[in-house]
Design a protein around this nucleic acid. Structure first.
Lengths: 351, 351
DNA sequence: ATGAAAGCGCTAACAT
DNA sequence: ATGTTAGCGCTTTCAT
């Protein structure tokens, strides 16, 4: 009796129902339900009897059945593009933490590169999610309407669409782009270039727009642009091309840290020194940016704040039925070692 | 009539049931069910009527209800530790892809640092998941038994426990450790050190064991060890201490690439050259390892293969009721630029 | 505080 | 091919 047999015939029925538990505990089925519901009126004695029986049978309430009956799950759909972009693991981590803290569970769907999120959203709606968070992707306005119809709030994380009536939480990319333009001009750079991610991303478009607009306001330089996709390799090659041009740029604003890392590698190969020959600015402030190997000047996306805003918007819409909102979180300039401080520096100028 | 009012009273009932659809389509409720079930016998005419009505009402089958009735969901619980470790985003991506391809959905739970996965597993079991994948963490054998009782297969990804009777898919860390020992000795290093992650991780213990054992077999050096947690910062400081010792190591085997990146940064600060002064070997082969900035010699964990094995084991247990297995996937030595080729090199020796 | 009974939205026999 | 019927495991009145 000491050691258990391997083929231990512990249980016949894999998942006993509350009825079986009730029977064993000698109480009604509703008593079992109540025993497992926090804040229900059960005597301590009954609760104990139930729990004992439950443990013996390996009973565990069926969350699915509960959701069906109460017409309300505690599921949140999370649809993620760019999972492998080093900016997102942290976002996912924070999001999961926040959602779990609020008692929600997460149904996660991955997005194929440049798919619309529509299909994924349709999918999660079948699970009667209470809300959906979409990162790095957008939904059609048909889909947005569909969600509205089922009153399932959607929040777009780091993407926005005009007049969709869908909540979105974004870094203030336009403003951040202007900040970088000012920084570069104020530190005496005169030939800045832009290393671009994909123009399908509103984030990329906005960063570029802010940067170019502010530059146009303050000088006459025709800003060279290269890139087109958010990856190390693209950053590397874009920088190589840009820096081999006849009138070589003296600064590169990269639409993401990933691109900037590629650019930094290109510089090394070209035998150019950062920041003496060329200054580099990234975007995101992923953890690596702070490593000595890169020591990258960049715009920090305040992930914590962005997640907090996301939660606030989502929970507000779910629990208080508040209206969709667009929330802009300011980017934060992080000065490190990849921008040279020119003697020609002028004082900072307000945008 | 052209433009819709904003307050558009499109729908009263958020989620119409199949009964409502049936009524509108003029068919029975089961016809609706069949119309939405692939491979059910419905005439094209009926299917069309149903679909039309469904679309008009915004009907979408309730996956939860279906699961309750058929006592079988298509959910897989994924419990992840170390989401922000750069090795995992890719694993998650691959896992999601594979699971979705098989028609499964993912319920994702994050793990607090060094929590056991028990609570998270208990959680997902309430959703009647068909199986559970746990990365970078273990379950108690009580919990393992619980899962066995509900016949929900568990597979441990990159962790293993002795005699638990639970499936696990791991890189062959011991063997990889031996490989690194051989590499270092064969290239003429005589004072190798080990930069360790956390000893709570079987991966770390196994890498260390293989490394030390093989070293002991081939030489007499008392290998210095430092570290204790898997992070850039720990790698940085461990390397600094190790390399400031009186008899400075001539090679560092780091239990992960992350640690190795930290070590590389430390070398720079110490004014030491890699690989002239010190050789460095990492583990994982995360994407960054291939970047010119690091160009790190490392052991590649074959993620694709590991995920394939994970799926095979999981699906096998779910669908064919096969028995738990332990699967070891060989690591792959990736030679890059951080190990010096000494003239004293001896020919490779088999472990 | 407890039990009896109704029913959530669906699938799966069973007839026809 | 279609409709009828009986539940899945639970929460929630409603009595008591």
């Amino acid at each position: 009796m000491r050691k258990k047999a391997r083929g231990d015939v512990q249980a016949r029925k894999p998942n006993p129902s509350s009825i079986v538990v009730a029977r064993l505990a000698g109480v009604s089925q509703s008593a079992v339900s109540r025993a497992f519901t926090t804040g229900a009126s059960v005597s301590e004695a009954t609760r104990l009897k139930v729990m004992r029986a439950a443990k013996k049978l390996g009973y565990r309430p069926n969350a699915l059945a509960r959701a069906v009956l109460s017409r309300q799950s505690d599921l949140i759909g999370v649809v993620m593009g760019e999972i492998t972009n080093p900016f997102y693991p942290e976002v996912l981590e924070l999001l999961l933490g926040a959602l779990e803290a609020k008692g929600y569970r997460v149904l996660l769907k991955r997005l194929e590169h440049r798919d619309s999120a529509d299909a994924a959203v349709e999918e999660v709606l079948r699970y009667r999610v209470r809300g959906t968070i979409i990162t790095s992707s957008i939904v059609s306005d048909e889909m947005a309407r569909e969600c509205g119809r089922s009153s399932v709030p959607v929040v777009l994380f780091n993407r926005h669409v005009k007049d969709l009536g869908v909540t979105s939480v974004c870094c203030d990319n336009v403003d951040a782009g202007r900040t970088v333009a000012n920084l570069l001009l104020d530190t005496g750079h005169v030939r800045p270039a832009f290393v671009s991610g994909s123009d399908e991303a509103s984030t990329n478009r906005d960063r570029k727009k802010g940067f170019l607009d502010r530059l146009a306001e303050r000088c006459d330089w025709d800003v060279p642009i290269d890139g087109g996709e958010n990856s190390h390799a693209v950053g590397y090659h874009a920088a190589k091309r840009l820096l081999s041009a006849p009138s070589r740029p003296d600064a590169l604003f990269c639409a993401s840290d990933l691109l900037a890392f590629g650019a930094l590698d290109a510089m090394r190969d070209l035998g150019l020194h950062v920041p003496k020959d060329v200054s580099i600015v990234g975007f995101d402030d992923v953890p690596m940016a702070a490593w000595p190997a890169f020591n990258l000047t960049t715009i920090r996306q305040q992930r914590q704040l962005m997640v907090r805003e996301t939660m606030e918007a989502l929970i507000g819409q779910i629990e208080q039925g508040s209206a969709p909102t667009v929330r802009l979180v300011p980017g934060e300039l992080v000065l490190r070692g990849t921008v040279r401080e020119s003697t020609r520096a002028r004082s900072a100028t307000a945008a």
